[in-house]
Amino acid sequence: MISRIPLRDSLSTLAGARLDTDVVVTNMGASRVWPLIENHRLDFHFNPSTMGGAIPLAMGIALAQPQRQIIVISGDGSLLMSLGSLVSVAAAGCSNLSIVLLDNGIYDVTGGQKTAAVDAGVRFDETARSVGFESVAMFDDAASWQADAAGFLRAKGPGFCWLKVAPALSEDMMTQQEPMGVQIERLRTELER
């Protein structure tokens, strides 16, 4: 039996560790659960989105704003659609970018179908380490993640944290985000400060 962190707990810990100046980019399932926990002017819920697009989008913000810490929360299904984006992040030397991978082994928003990575036995931490991420961690219990989350976010980047999480609660997946135009305008304004 694989140990998994309840999804809300994993995100609550991240919200508690994030600094007021950090940008947080969410995507897919995370963009529906995060607003139930945190509502910050530097949050950007990248929906509607192309799966696999959140990491490149966050990378762009990180390159444009090197003085800021950028945190991107990606699901395992999304990462698998653009696994090469890890290489792009490392190659560009995005030392101010932290990727938090929520790995539940399934495509949550489409009903829970298993990803190919489960059968392949992918070690996402080893993948990130091998392409050059400076700080790599893996957590499958809430207490350890809570103890080390702030340290991970402040470690030399680019950082990659693999969280083994439980699927989202169905009622949590109904959250509606602010309209994209409103989010874009707010984030642009905040990033200009």
Partner: peptide, 26 residues
């Protein structure tokens, strides 16, 4: 002009969007 190398073309558009949001011109 800083060159950014990516691995698959689908990365390019959201990466450009992030740069634009951050005030750059990709």
């Amino acid at each position: 002009v800083q060159l950014i190398r990516i691995c698959r073309e689908g990365e390019a558009w959201p990466l450009a969007a992030g740069l634009t949001l951050g005030g750059k011109v990709p």
